[in-house]
Design a protein around this nucleic acid. Sequence first.
DNA 1: CTTGTGACGCATC
DNA 2: AGATGCGCCACAA
Length: 99
Amino acid sequence: METAIVRVIQRIPRGQVATYGQVAAAAGYPRHHRQVAQVLGRCGDALPWHRVLGSGGQIKTRLDGGLEQRFRLEMEGVRFRGSRVNMAEHQSKLTVRSR
DNA sequence: CTTGTGACGCATC
DNA sequence: AGATGCGCCACAA
């Protein structure tokens, strides 16, 4: 399961973002948004963690890289609207494909 | 089995 | 916008 979630995150195209709920659903586990958070915390260092946002496109990462995530996204072309991301523009529609 | 934890989500205050 | 409470699910101890 952790693997499935990881794969989904790795599938997020550059310049696009996905929410925890979407990642979990795309991985095949709706309502497991929290596991996504745990996974990121465990091996986020090996993933494009900056593509994962909270609901509405908010940066929930309030640890140490909160600002860094913002910079990274902007660097990829993601446009922000205040403290949020233009979901409608970069919302990556993940597909529930097992593999 | 029980408890605590986790980069959450939503409703409510 | 921020804090709080409840719900949700998996995993580690």
